[in-house]
Design a protein around this nucleic acid. Structure first.
Lengths: 210, 210
DNA sequence: AACAAAGTTGCGGACTGTGCATATTTGCAT
DNA sequence: ATGCAAATATGCACAGTCCGCAACTTTGTT
């Protein structure tokens, strides 16, 4: 779906996607600026130019709206993994695919952050919110199921019978999460992609004691 | 705290613990019997013999009450890990400690399930609930932070600087989750502990392709 | 026994999330 | 261009959740 040409989508579908993106972006921006508890569904809907009821047509909760872009990005990891050459070693494919989640989203390009340090501080507060953590992890689990399916396809295993694809998918998800948490803790100049590669390498090596 | 002698606790503290356990157990039981959306906070409070406002003094949400026992059990993994002999190889310690989460809780012993198949079906529905998944994973993340701290202690690494303890903790959490999901999917005669051991062994081996 | 600290409870209010019906927009066929 | 169907937006009402606050009850200390 995400690779479909916009020219082939009707107006209806295009408007749906735009509305979804606007709601999600508004949710992220307001939450980072003000804090989770200071943003109501009504505020998000207003910022996106729709009614609160419409917000609920798209998302069941505020946290779900905030996490939507993250979900999109992590689902793309499964998609990218499916697109890697079949002959490529699994962990090499994974390393390439996993990077997809850290590419800058369109909104970040369209709305450059003027105060980067403040933005990061806001993000840190946002991810520390219990409801956000739950939703964030739940999105990760959804993507993980897709990654497991992709791993099963590549390795000839069965998601309904074997632990393996699930364990690999869990490792990929964990690597991404640990890299991001580490980055939020340490901040620049650490690079997200480098942290991710390191984490994946440690999993592939069997997590030997340093 | 959990190892403290009950005789040393005041009435106040004892009653708090009992109330918490009653609320949590009532939440689990009613939800498994009726389904998540058919149980209100008021029902749980009534079943435990307290007011709804008191329920909220203990738990912020229904899901949190349901997941409380799981949180207790997974936190015990970190505790058990801290108690293993320092000379023991890390993954061996982990394998022993991780089993703690699958010991039958007191209530399960006190209230034997009469229809095991129906109970499992109810649990399956319960864990499929989105709010439950988020809370379940969030509890896992809390325990994971404790496990990471315990791993750091054993290996002389630093949770604020190194990825390693976090990655190991994530592997432990993932192994537990994957084992449980597999068990819920497959059911008896698969044994939870065996699945867990297998999952941990795969992580320690670097997740080689089968 | 008197008093302080901790915990329970009732109440009110803001907010969430959902079902339902109506209004509006888009797509399709003629 | 027009009429109609399908999809989407919106307003409304309501049950339920969660929290601040104050009054009451229970436990602990002196």
């Amino acid at each position: 779906m995400s690779t479909e040409d916009g020219a082939r989508l009707g107006l209806r579908e295009r408007k749906k996607r735009e509305t979804r993106a606007m709601l999600s972006w508004a949710a992220v921006r307001l939450t980072v600026e003000r804090g989770f508890d200071r943003v109501r569904v009504e505020d998000i809907a207003e910022a996106a130019g729709v009614s609160p009821r419409t917000f609920n047509n798209y998302f069941s909760s505020k946290a779900e709206a905030i996490v939507a872009r993250h979900l999109d990005r992590t689902l793309r990891v499964a998609e990218m993994l499916r697109g890697r050459p079949a002959s490529e070693p699994l962990w090499e494919s994974i390393a390439h695919a996993a990077r997809a989640q850290f590419e800058p989203p369109p909104e970040a390009v369209a709305h450059p952050v003027t105060d980067r340090r403040q933005w990061i501080a806001g993000v840190q507060l946002m991810v520390a919110e219990p409801a956000m953590q739950g939703e964030f992890l739940r999105a990760g689990a959804l993507a993980e199921a897709e990654i497991a399916a992709a791993v099963a396809e590549r390795t000839g295993t069965d998601v309904n019978r074997d632990l393996y694809p699930h364990l690999v998918a869990a490792a990929v998800t964990a690597a991404g999460n640990v890299a991001m948490q580490h980055w939020l803790r340490i901040g620049p100049p650490a690079e997200m992609e480098q942290l991710l590669s390191e984490a994946l390498a440690q999993f592939a090596a069997g997590l030997p004691t340093p």
